[in-house]
Design a protein around this nucleic acid. Structure first.
Length: 611
RNA sequence: GGGGUAGUAGCUCAGUUGGUUAGAGCGCCGGCCUGUCACGCCGGAGGCCGCGGGUUCGAGUCCCGUCUAUCCCGCCA
C-alpha cells in the first residue's frame, strides 16, 4: 500500500450526507453520499445489489449495468469492506418494496463508489441467527467484529442511554459527580484484591479499589452532601456469568438522610432509567420485605417474585412426629419447611435427581418429596407420616393431583436456602412445561431490609459484618450490640429485581466511638489492625462527620436485565473470560525483566501451595 | 480448589457396536445469471477429529492425563 494510494484515498473521501437508516420515500430524487460496511452483495450478472450498513441501519444500493468502472470494481467487493457510495435516491417499484427494511421503500442508484477499506473474510458469520451460536471465545477474540453486529451495537446504545438517564436524574436531584482513585490501600477484609506494585515505594503496593466505599464516606465528611459516580471496581475473585474482574457500579452517597429518603430516591432513579432506556413504566414504591420474611417465603435474600410457589413452615406439625428426621430437626432448634411444586408430579427420574443434587450442593442430606398422583400420595417417607400430618400438608400447601411437595429439615437458614434452590430449579422445570412463566419484561422490584448486621463466621470463630463494617445498626437494636450481636439488625437495604441483586447499601456509622466499638468489640479486630487500616476514617469522623448513607448498583447487571441478556459479558464492550483473560488483546501476559526490576519483583515458579 | 457440559473444514454441526477414502449446511474460490433482499444455478478447494500418552491388527469413536471455553459450588456485595 503506497503512500500515494493513501493520499489519493484521503483526498477522494466525500462527506456523508445521510446515515444508512434514515432515507425514506420523501428523499426520492435527492443526491446522497452514504458510507458504511457491505452487509451483503447480490450480483445478478447485470444488475447488482449491495446492502450498505452503518450504525443506524441498512440501505440497498443498486448498480445498473453500463457503468463499466463500477461493475468491475464491485465484482471484487466483499462483505464487511468499507464503502462510500454517491448516488440518487429512487423509489422502488411497488413489487420490489421490502417491508422488513426501514429504508425498504427506496434504494440508492449508485453513480460512483469508492472502496474505503477492504475486509478479509470474517472469521465467523455476521448474520445474527448464526453468529449468536458461534463459540464465545472466537467472538471475544474478534470482539470488534462481534460488536459490529447491529444487535450488539444496540446493547452499547442501551447501556449509554442507561448511564445518561442516571446522570440526568442524579444531577437533577442535586448530586455532584466526583471521581475517586482506582489505586487504593489494600484492605484484606472482604474480596481478594488486585495488587499494584509501587515503583516509587519499593516493596509497597496499592490495591485496585473493590468499590469507592471509603472514599465516598470521606466525601461526605468533606461536605459534598450528595455524591455519585459511575465507578469502575475491581475484585480478584472467581468469575461467573454475572461477575467480571472489573465491573461498573452506579455509586452514590448522601448526607442528612434516613432510609426513607434513600428508598424514594432510588425508586425515582429506577423509574427514570426504565423509562429512558426501554420506555417502560414501572410501579413505585417497591414492596419492602424483611430478610426473615424473604428467607421464610422464598428461601433467598434475592427472591424472584414473578411466580408464587412459596415455602411453608411445618415445624409445629412435625415437632412430635413419628418421623424422626423431622421431629429431630425441630427438637434441636431447627425447622421443617415444605414447598409445593404445583403440577410437577410428571417429573422424570433425571429431573428429580437434578433437584436433589441442587439441594445436596447446599448441604442437604437428601430431598424428601411426596407426589400426588391419581388420587394417591406416593413417597418413600409417606409411611412415617400420620394422617393428621398429611392432612396439615394437604391443607396448608393446597396439594392437588399432579403436585409434588419437597421438604427440608434442619437449621433455619440452611433449610430455607435449600428449598429456595429447589424452588428455582422446580420453576425452571415448570416453565419448560409451560405451567408457569417468568417474563423477563415483568419487572418485580422489591427491597430486602432488616438484614442481620453480623453473621457468625464459623471458620474464623468470630462475627463478621454481613454487609460491611460501616453499616449502622437500627436504633432499637443498639443495646443488643454487647449482649446479643447476632440479633442486631443493620440499616441495610438491598434492591432486588427478578431474582437478581441489583444493588445494596446502608445508612453508615458516623460516630467515631460507635465505629471503633464495632471494629474492636463486635468484629474483634485487633486495635493495631483497626488503626492501621481504618485509623484515618476514625479520625475523619472525629472532625464532624454528618449522618450519611448510600447505595451502589451493578450497572452491568442492570443493563443485562434491560437488554434481556443472560451474561454481563454481553453488555460490556470488552469483557474477560472466566480465567480473566482478554482474548482480543491477549492480557494478562508476562512482563519483561526490566519492568520487573523497576518494580522490585521477581517471578517464581507457578506452584500453588495449599494454605 | 471441586463438579457438569463442549471441543471434528473458516463457522454451525452429523459421524452407528472401534472397521474402507471422515460427511452436510453456510462461508470461501471459479463460472453463469438484469430486480434481488438468506438471490438462484453449475463446478472446485478446504481436515494434526483441541493436545499428549495408552489399549488394539485397527481409534474421531474406548481409557488416562492435559489445555481452552462455558455453567455451577466454594469464593465474592
Amino acid at each position: 500500500m503506497s503512500v500515494g494510494w493513501v493520499f489519493s484515498f484521503l483526498f477522494s473521501m466525500k462527506k456523508r450526507t445521510h446515515n444508512c437508516g434514515e432515507l425514506r420515500k420523501e428523499a426520492a430524487g435527492s443526491k446522497v453520499v452514504l458510507t458504511g460496511w457491505i452487509d451483503s452483495v447480490r450480483d445478478h450478472g447485470g444488475v447488482l445489489f449491495v446492502d450498505l450498513r452503518d450504525r443506524e441501519g441498512v440501505t440497498q444500493v443498486v448498480v445498473h449495468p453500463g457503468n463499466q468502472t463500477i461493475d468491475e470494481a464491485m465484482a471484487h467487493f466483499k462483505p464487511e469492506s468499507v464503502l462510500e457510495v454517491e448516488g440518487e435516491v429512487v423509489l422502488r417499484e411497488p413489487s420490489t418494496i421490502n417491508s422488513r427494511m426501514q429504508t425498504g421503500e427506496i434504494e440508492v442508484q449508485a453513480g460512483a463508489v469508492e472502496l474505503l477499506n477492504h475486509s478479509k473474510t470474517p472469521p465467523f458469520p455476521m448474520d445474527d441467527e448464526k453468529a449468536d451460536k458461534v463459540n464465545e471465545d472466537l467472538r471475544l477474540r474478534y470482539r470488534y467484529m462481534d460488536l459490529r453486529r447491529p444487535r450488539n451495537l444496540d446493547v452499547l446504545r442501551l447501556r449509554h442511554r442507561t448511564a445518561q438517564a442516571v446522570r440526568r436524574y442524579l444531577d437533577e436531584s442535586g448530586f455532584l459527580e466526583v471521581e475517586t482513585p482506582s489505586l487504593f490501600k489494600s484492605t484484606p477484609e472482604g474480596a481478594r484484591e488486585f495488587l499494584v506494585p509501587s515503583r516509587l515505594n519499593p516493596n509497597e503496593y496499592y490495591a485496585l479499589v473493590q468499590s469507592p466505599q471509603q472514599y465516598k464516606q470521606m466525601l461526605m465528611v468533606a461536605g459534598v452532601e450528595r455524591y455519585f459516580q459511575i465507578a469502575r471496581c475491581f475484585r480478584d475473585e472467581d468469575l461467573r456469568a454475572d461477575r467480571q474482574p472489573e465491573f461498573t457500579q452506579i455509586d452514590l452517597e448522601m448526607s442528612f438522610i434516613d432510609r426513607e429518603d434513600m428508598y424514594a430516591l432510588v425508586e425515582g432513579l429506577m423509574k427514570r432509567v426504565w423509562k429512558d432506556a426501554v420506555g417502560a413504566d414501572i410501579q413505585t414504591p417497591f414492596p419492602r420485605l424483611s430478610y426473615n420474611e424473604v428467607m421464610n417465603r422464598f428461601g433467598s435474600d434475592k427472591p424472584d417474585t414473578r411466580f408464587a410457589m412459596e415455602i411453608n413452615d411445618f415445624s409445629e406439625t412435625f415437632a412430635k412426629s413419628g418421623f424422626k428426621v423431622f421431629a429431630g430437626a425441630v427438637s434441636s432448634g431447627g425447622v421443617v419447611k415444605a414447598i409445593n411444586a404445583k403440577g410437577l408430579a410428571d417429573l422424570t427420574q433425571g429431573e428429580l435427581k437434578g433437584l436433589e443434587e441442587g439441594a445436596k450442593s447446599l448441604g442437604a442430606k437428601g430431598l424428601a418429596f411426596i407426589k400426588a398422583e391419581a388420587g394417591q400420595w406416593k413417597s418413600p417417607i409417606l409411611k412415617f407420616l400420620s394422617d393428621e400430618e398429611q392432612q396439615a400438608l394437604k391443607e396448608q400447601l393446597e396439594v392437588e393431583d399432579g403436585d409434588v411437595v419437597f421438604f427440608a429439615a434442619g437449621e433455619w437458614e440452611s433449610a430455607c436456602t435449600i428449598l429456595g434452590r429447589v424452588r428455582l430449579d422446580a420453576a425452571k422445570l415448570l416453565e419448560k412445561r409451560g405451567k408457569i412463566t417468568r417474563d423477563p419484561k415483568d419487572y418485580k422490584f422489591l427491597w430486602v431490609i432488616e438484614f442481620p448486621l453480623m453473621l457468625f463466621d464459623e471458620e474464623a470463630g468470630r462475627f463478621a459484618a454481613a454487609h460491611h463494617p460501616f453499616t449502622s445498626p437500627v436504633p432499637e437494636d443498639m443495646d443488643l450490640l454487647d449482649s446479643d450481636p447476632k440479633a442486631v439488625r443493620g440499616q441495610h437495604y438491598d434492591l432486588v429485581l427478578n431474582g437478581v441483586e441489583l444493588g445494596g447499601g446502608s445508612i453508615r456509622i458516623h460516630q467515631p466511638d460507635l465505629q471503633q466499638k464495632v471494629f474492636e468489640d463486635v468484629l474483634s479486630l485487633p486495635k493495631d489492625v483497626v488503626q492501621e487500616r481504618f485509623g484515618y476514617m476514625l479520625e475523619a469522623f472525629s472532625y464532624g462527620a454528618p449522618p450519611h448513607g448510600g447505595i451502589a448498583f451493578g450497572l452491568d447487571r442492570l443493563v443485562a436485565i434491560l437488554a434481556n441478556r443472560p451474561s454481563i459479558r454481553d453488555v460490556i464492550a470488552f469483557p474477560k473470560t472466566q480465567k480473566g483473560q482478554d482474548l482480543m488483546a491477549g492480557s494478562p501476559s508476562p512482563a519483561g525483566d526490566k519492568q520487573l526490576r523497576d518494580l522490585f519483583i521477581r517471578n517464581v515458579e507457578p506452584v500453588r501451595t495449599e494454605d
